[in-house]
Amino acid sequence: MIQIENLHKKFGKNQVLSHLDLRIDEGGIFAVLGPNGSGKTTLIKSILGMVVPNKGNLSVLGASIRKNWKYRQEIDYLPQIANFPGNLKVKELIRMIKDLRQKPSNEQELITLLGLEPFLDKKLGTLSGGTKQKVNIVLTFMFDSPLIILDEPTTGLDPASLLKLKDLIQKEKSKGKTILITTHIMQFVEEMADEIVYLLEGNIYFKGTIDELMAKTEQNDFEHAIAAISTHTTNA
């Protein structure tokens, strides 16, 4: 699904990703974890082509993404901070994205599910953080694409919406889709993820299932296991 070879990215003097190799196979939920500033968002943005790597090869669905933009048709992306043009109405934004992608979509179902009907005629600038995140979720899940990338999807959501989001993700997974998630909420990872990709200082530090991680770190619960990886390296 995604193949990354020897990826390098520098922002000024700050080496964010170095010698990163990663292979993500089709199907399942992959959690991309790592401390703040470990390069999670940069990795995701590289896959999306928003960040141009200094070195390395990236291919999505078997085709190199260099000088290619059509592959994004097959990706649904939920950005970290839901920043939308403030003077657009929710309805207009949804219509615009549909117009740009020209794919069948099921936004109505999602709008009902998340209870967004009262906000359809409101301008995006006037919405609260959580409501914006719900709009963000509608925009991401309304298309049927084989690859879904979620950057901090839980931000600002109330418990009820969080449950709905989890259901949505599970539903997409059952269709055989590949889902990449970054988050800092370990409980969410434990519940959802099939496999973990742990980034540290711009490189993959660990890749495997939760059980493998616990075996490696000799911990009994997941949260401690994650904490153990980080302390492990600071000691090393």
């Binding site: 999306l48 082509g49 928003m50 933009w69 059509k70 592959y71 994004r72 048709q73 990706i75 992306y77 950005p79 920043n83 939308f84 043009p85 403030g86 994205i97 740009l100 992608r101």
Partner: peptide
């Protein structure tokens, strides 16, 4: 800027 970032993730 926000509009641009939204568009960058689209197949454009």
């Amino acid at each position: 800027k926000e509009f641009t970032e939204l568009l960058l993730a689209q197949p454009l």
